[in-house]
Write a protein that binds this DNA or RNA. Structure first.
Lengths: 229, 229
DNA sequence: CAGTATGGTGACGGTTTAGTGACAGGGGAA
DNA sequence: TTCCCCTGTCACTAAACCGTCACCATACTG
């Protein structure tokens, strides 16, 4: 769910893009001109900018330059929209610092693919290093968990949960913190749901000989600990 | 520091490219025609070829074919330079074995980015050596796959897919990563298409006695693994 | 000791994700 | 040209997973 600033003066195209973005799970911010765009850029700091190259008044290239000149907005990737065959724009655009371009007319699918590609390129994946505690080993790269050699099968959520515990061991985490870190800060689920997943995780670990790895701290939350108490 | 053969007859463009390459830390070899190119290819075995599609005399596509036909040069990646909007060339070029294309006119930045991308993609599998895992053998040179001696017949896409899996075994790859690595960055296909090709690949492998070689990691992607779990 | 709050647990529907068969279009070969 | 292979997409099916609840067990309180 990325917030994407759409700088486009033609209302119908603006609408088309915004609908496409919403449908692909993004959050469009609309700007019909450079001024609005600049304001929204400062206020919202979007994750990506879709920039029409031909804007009334200040042109897209100027906007791109100012965007790249500002410390705060420098890192925001730009995808520019150009008319078909306007190769010159393409060149200057990429030189100004656009990350990709889409030529009009474009298909919603292409647009979505470009956005996805740019966002993916932008975000280096999380820590990929294997973690090992007390004979229990979790490897994000292979997505495998083993307990003293024996495979442990986990669902996606249990996997993330265990990963979080192993990278933050010995520390007590409230249900709210776990929801934030493992589920994501925007989802709304009951806190008790954590209990259920803890149970599932414990079940899988006990089947592999790891008892009491995850401890309950009554009134506070849960903790992963190798010290038995 | 990669050695890059630039096959381009127009001196000014040749110059532009060479300068760009030098500035981005590469080592350009210049060839104004196909003959020189072939000679340099044999003598220097560069890490990458930048190939103008429109050459005097022998055309770029012929050169690409000969390059792919020769044992020694088969593994060298090709980026082709095409005129704007020449969609047909793009398609035939990619099918002949080009790894990417850049349309003229291009920006130095774009060129550098493409080169980096291709080299990065190339690096882990720089070897065109045969790969063998768990009795399954894939030979890029002969384009053949055998399972304990018995031939396995695969379509082109399944072959590349399997090759990628075998050179990146045990690791989980998302559908997006597979599309990038096997299909190419600039191709727009549905992510579910990966599923279908996985299925076709599995079908071919199972017919040869290799069950469960390619595993599904729910929510994440696929993995080739010889460890059964 | 009863009363209350907190966590454990099993089960259940709905939703999401992957598997699968079919199909139309395109390209190359004959 | 026709034929055949390959490809990407779709619709449908199958399965895994998730969140929630109800109920039980345990711990704390006075």
């Amino acid at each position: 769910m990325a917030r994407i600033l759409v700088v486009e003066d033609e209302p119908s195209i603006q609408e088309l893009i915004s609908v496409t973005l919403t449908r692909t799970g993004h959050d469009p911010l609309r700007a019909p001109d450079a001024e609005t765009a600049l304001r929204l850029l400062q206020a919202e700091l979007p994750d990506l900018v879709l920039l029409d190259w031909m804007l009334p008044g200040q042109s897209g290239i100027d906007l791109a330059r100012r965007l790249r000149g500002d410390e705060r907005t420098r890192g925001v990737p730009i995808i520019m929209l150009t008319a078909r065959g306007d190769e010159q724009s393409k060149v200057t655009g990429l030189e100004t610092g656009a990350d990709d371009y889409v030529t009009k007319p474009f298909s919603p699918r292409e647009l979505a693919a470009r956005i996805k590609a740019v966002l993916r390129r932008q975000k280096p994946q999380a820590t990929e290093d294997p973690v090992e505690i007390d004979g229990l080993r979790l490897d994000p790269a292979t997505h495998r968990v083993t307990a003293r050699g024996a495979a442990v099968v986990l669902g996606p959520t249990e996997f993330r949960l265990l990963h979080f515990f192993m990278t933050h061991a010995e520390r007590v985490h409230s249900r709210a913190q776990l929801l934030d870190s493992v589920w994501g800060d925007h989802v709304f689920v009951e806190e008790r749901t954590v209990d259920v997943h803890i149970r599932r995780l414990r079940g899988a670990l006990e089947a592999s000989g790891h008892d009491a790895l995850i401890q309950t701290v009554r009134g506070s939350g849960y903790r992963l600990s190798c010290q038995k108490d």
